[in-house]
Design a protein around this nucleic acid. Structure first.
Lengths: 245, 245
DNA sequence: ACTTGACGCGAACAGTGTTCGCCATTAAAA
DNA sequence: TTTTAATGGCGAACACTGTTCGCGTCAAGT
């Protein structure tokens, strides 16, 4: 019955209203597509619905609300983060590589980091990554209490730095120029502003303008990361070395 | 002329339409009042205007847009942060005290930290604090380049941690209960969720639940801060000690 | 006394997230 | 095979948001 070729008018009808074209996965995929192309602010229920050729109300059958949708997109992005098998003798290096990898993925997907800052991540991929970080640290002899605190602080650091970086990307999107020239002009203005400050009120700031402006985003991130990791290493040595000693 | 008591009918007129009742300072003060009482989301142009007994359009004569208003409120809050005179021999302690003071002020004003995350602070108070931090570090013998990177990372850390903390406050506001019982219930749910996870997929996470849940917000913040400061101290020793050596 | 100019502000526009109620289609039941 | 139940899709609407336009009114300058 249903296998016979349907008459054209019925086919038109079916094409105009095929059931189950919408699903959680399709909605999340559409949202991620918009996020990458137009930024987080563009990910509205209406825009996602439009991407799927429907209205905003249709999404609520598959997704509780916008917050849940963003959480789902966030975990989808986290799925791109690769984690290694623990090698105890190079645990610190491994941890550093994992953080750099996470940072890379966050930066690749515009300002999704804002979502990570705003929620306690409970998606499967977020859990997978937290578990892997914990595994590497415990294998390296980090005291469990310290390791537990550490994943919290590292997650906050990666998200907040990526979020800060996404702000420049957003402003560039608002303007029209390319990223390179935009950043140049933007930081040029900042530097000009700093140089215009009264040296008697802000003596140290004015004296250190070159040092303040010199470092780029990547250098700043790695500097802070190294501070955190050095501090962590000192905790391990203090608690009794399990490795190389 | 203007000193003589005005006749009642004029007084009534003046009371009904007094000129220049609006000003930047009044608008900022009203915004800060709403921020403290109802949170950042409540600070809308309409709500601020209502607080001043007028309409939203009236604000735009004194303030460029909402972003500028938030920046002004942010700097107003930063004005509460006290900074010390540099004492070179206890520079690290002093730096730590400054960060704790900043964190205290941020927490006192709900989720203003979100604004600090979203903009490069250029207000007078933000500059004053950055200059003071720089002063303490340079007096302590921190290499200028390192000190410059450090204020950036410390600012990011304080803001992001305060922002994360403000999220709980917001959710509590959305519900009706008091902060104490809300946090208890909330983290109870989180803990329950973690305990329900399959131990074969997330073995380390499940094994460390107690360690993950034990620490409160203050302990987490100070843990991360100590990591950063230990790392900074190691930079100073490496660059050649100016103090006590 | 009259003009000028700026401020105050009501109304409107283009957005947002979310809900309600109706329609069509499909799956199950009789 | 016919009727019923339920479910997904979706147009319209609600209560918001930031922002702009243009009118009127009031204060000061000439």
């Amino acid at each position: 019955m249903t296998d016979i070729p349907a008459p054209p008018w019925r086919k038109t009808r079916r094409a105009s209203a095929p059931r189950a074209v919408l699903s959680r996965d399709l909605i999340v995929a559409a949202g991620l597509r918009i996020l990458d192309a137009e930024g987080l602010d563009a990910v509205s229920m209406r825009r996602v619905a439009q991407e799927l050729g429907t209205g905003p109300a249709s999404l609520y059958a598959h997704v509780e609300n916008k917050e849940e949708l963003l959480d789902l997109i966030y975990d989808e992005v986290m799925g791109e983060i690769q984690v290694p098998e623990p090698e105890p003798e190079r645990w610190l290096e491994q941890l550093r590589e994992m953080i750099m990898e996470a940072s890379r993925v966050f930066r690749a997907h515009a300002d999704i980091a804002k979502v990570g800052l705003a929620t306690i991540p409970t998606g499967p991929n977020a859990l997978r990554i937290a578990d892997a970080q914990l595994a590497v640290m415990l294998a390296g002899g980090v005291p469990p209490k310290v390791a537990a605190l550490m994943i919290d602080r590292l997650g906050l650091y990666v998200c907040s730095d990526a979020y800060e970086g996404s702000l420049y990307l957003n402003r560039q999107r608002a303007g029209g120029s390319d990223l390179e020239s935009f950043l140049g002009e933007f930081f040029g203005q900042i530097e000009e502003f700093y140089r215009s400050l009264p040296a008697d009120r802000f003596p140290h700031l004015v004296a250190q303008i070159d040092n303040l402006m010199e470092a780029g985003g990547a250098e700043r991130f790695e500097f802070g990361l190294d501070l955190l990791l050095r501090g962590l290493a000192s905790h391990v040595e203090a608690a009794g070395p399990t490795t190389k000693g």
